[in-house]
Amino acid sequence: MGKPYGRILLKLSGEALMGNLGYGIDPKVVQEIAAEVAEIVKSGTQVAIVVGGGNIFRGVKASAAGMDRATGDYIGMIATVMNALTLQDCLERLEVQTRVQTAIAMQEVAEPYIRRRAIRHLEKGRVVIFGAGSGNPFFTTDTTAALRAAEIDAEVIFKATKVDGVYDSDPHVNPQAKRYQTLNYVHVLTQDLRVMDSTAIALCKENNIPILIFDLSVRGNIQRAVMGESIGTIVGGFCEVS
């Protein structure tokens, strides 16, 4: 077990919030995620969260159906704010102070994103949830996670998924698929492993921010990750491919 992380950025996909539902938000799943986040906040780790919106709307999918891509992406950004506010409500019912900051001005429901204010909130033990992506169309919430992690000096990005790491092939198709313990950025990019999109990986590489990919559905995994336990797959600049 390694040293506990002091400041992390947790990347949640919108799909993670819908559980086994085909669409929308599963309150039970959000409550479980909030409970895990509350545990690590109370242990002293500073937590920022970037949440996606794919459980409600996907700009890329809408674009494929004929919608203007930029318009679709803006609608997707608004969907992420819905998820952020839902997560905020669950956290605050657990007595965790929380702030939602959005890249698109929504002053009635959230603060505008201001880097120094976000860092100050973290220093005071508040969870900061970043909504509305980066505020720009054509950029994913993965890229937003890498960007915000760099801006707030996060030690690591936790990419919470529905699988227990990164494999060399689809484990649902190939029973012999190998799960990587460690990877480096170059291997992820050259092998197109789709850990995060290439822009996000490049940002992490330039700023030397490691990425831990792990299974969110296993209760306690966020706490294990914060404590430095060996779970999932870690991507970093000095990691060997293993």
Rank of each mutant, 00 (worst) to 15 (best):
E155L: 06
G165R: 12
R179F: 07
V41C: 08
I234A: 02
Y5E: 00
V163L: 06
A145K: 08
L10W: 09
L193T: 04
A110S: 14
I104D: 03
V218Q: 14
F158R: 02
S198G: 07
I49D: 11
T45K: 08
M106Q: 14
N136M: 11
D73I: 09
E111F: 08
A70L: 11
G220R: 10
T182D: 05
T140F: 10
N20F: 00
L9V: 14
G131V: 01
V30E: 06
I119Q: 14
I201Y: 06
V188Y: 06
V96C: 04
E123D: 13
A38F: 07
A65I: 00
I119V: 15
M18S: 08
S13H: 00
P112L: 10
S43P: 04
V41N: 03
M67V: 14
D68A: 07
Y113I: 14
L212M: 09
V127W: 08
S169Q: 01
L10F: 13
R120H: 12
I209F: 03
L216H: 02
I33F: 11
L212D: 00
A150E: 13
E111D: 13
C239V: 01
A202Y: 06
T140P: 05
R224L: 07
L87D: 06
A64W: 02
G59F: 07
D164N: 11
P27E: 06
H187W: 04
A79H: 01
A110R: 00
I209N: 01
G133N: 13
E123A: 11
E123S: 10
I211P: 00
Y113M: 15
K61E: 15
D89C: 01
I25V: 12
A70P: 02
